[in-house]
Computed example of a mutant assay.
Amino acid sequence: MQLSPSVSISHTDSGLEYLNVDSPLCTARIFLQGAQLTQYTPAGKKPLIWVSKEEDFQVGKSIRGGIPICWPWFGVHQNPKWPTHGVARTALWRAQEVKESEQEIRISLSLPMLQVDETYWAHNTSLTVEYVLSAKQLEVRLTNTNLDDHDVQLTQALHTYFPTSDITQTEVDGLQGAQYIEFGKGPFEQQDIIRFGRETDMVYSGASALQRIRTPDGTIEVARENSKSCVLWNPWVDKSKRLSNFADDEYHTMLCLEAANVLDDLVTLAPNQSHTLGTIIRWS
């Protein structure tokens, strides 16, 4: 089914539906499950998003790569039996609107709250995500609105996976001066540009709004809006062997740098209030 001149609906062999973008501006793919973008390649440039070669795109199972939407909590919940990173990334979202112009393509999706078990989220809220795709950059906007009569709190993240041809020759600049917690220890202050030589799982607070990932293939700029926290992750050797849908050596070709609202940066919404978490990524 064609939704616009450059956007159509297709599906994987396993039955998952996705929006396929094939435009002079870029190519992209956004799954209805999780509203998860798994591909974005601006015209004439290399891909900006990484997905595991082991991913098999199964119904009800989170996709390893792309931009998983972690909501309404990030990481492991206080109740360890609840799903890690919340429920949004495996729920079936609804394609709401597609707008296409010569400069950009806007795709909006919403999460029907009937898809969310009240055990995990008993509040009356709405959740939408908008992808703005162009030849220059990808912009993602995740908007929560509190439709209830009491305050609502949540944590969330846009868990973006980025590609690199060599993690040992990759560095992240722009987190200097921020505080981080790693493996339950901290906070510590980030002193230097970050290079990779071990498992990395840093949750930052007080981070500046722009970071640069320098890879052998070029520099990726990652900007954030309404986010003072972010997460930097690479599983390295041992954890890679324990991850599902992840080849043992794939830690060498990826890293995550995630726009987030976590720790003291959690979102508190008063009745009728909205909050939009945004990230913008591009080749420098």
Rank of each mutant, 00 (worst) to 15 (best):
G34L: 01
T215C: 10
V51G: 04
I49S: 03
V231E: 05
P163L: 02
N79V: 10
A91C: 15
I63F: 13
L138Y: 09
L232E: 02
P68T: 07
Q273N: 06
V132N: 15
T41D: 06
Q33M: 05
K45S: 12
I67D: 10
E225A: 12
V140R: 02
M1Q: 13
Q96D: 15
H159E: 09
D56P: 03
L277P: 03
E17R: 03
W82H: 11
D265M: 07
E97T: 12
S274P: 08
D238P: 03
N124L: 02
A88E: 05
N245T: 07
G206P: 08
A209G: 09
S227L: 04
S4Y: 12
I167H: 02
Q190A: 05
F246Q: 00
R214C: 09
H11R: 15
L232M: 05
T84P: 10
R64Q: 14
C230D: 04
A135D: 14
Q211R: 11
W236T: 02
T200P: 08
R195N: 06
G184Y: 06
S6W: 13
Y204Q: 03
D249L: 11
E182F: 07
K61E: 12
I194V: 12
V129G: 01
T155C: 09
I280T: 15
Y161T: 00
D265E: 14
L263Y: 09
G15Q: 04
I30W: 05
Q96F: 07
I105Y: 13
I194H: 05
Q191W: 04
C26S: 13
I181V: 15
D264M: 13
E118C: 04
L277E: 03
W283C: 02
T119V: 11
L210I: 14
N144C: 10
K241P: 05
A209N: 12
E199H: 10
D117Y: 08
T145E: 03
M113G: 01
L154M: 14
S52T: 10
T143V: 07
D22G: 02
T41K: 07
F188K: 08
W236P: 04
Y204T: 02
W50Q: 04
R89Y: 08
G186I: 00
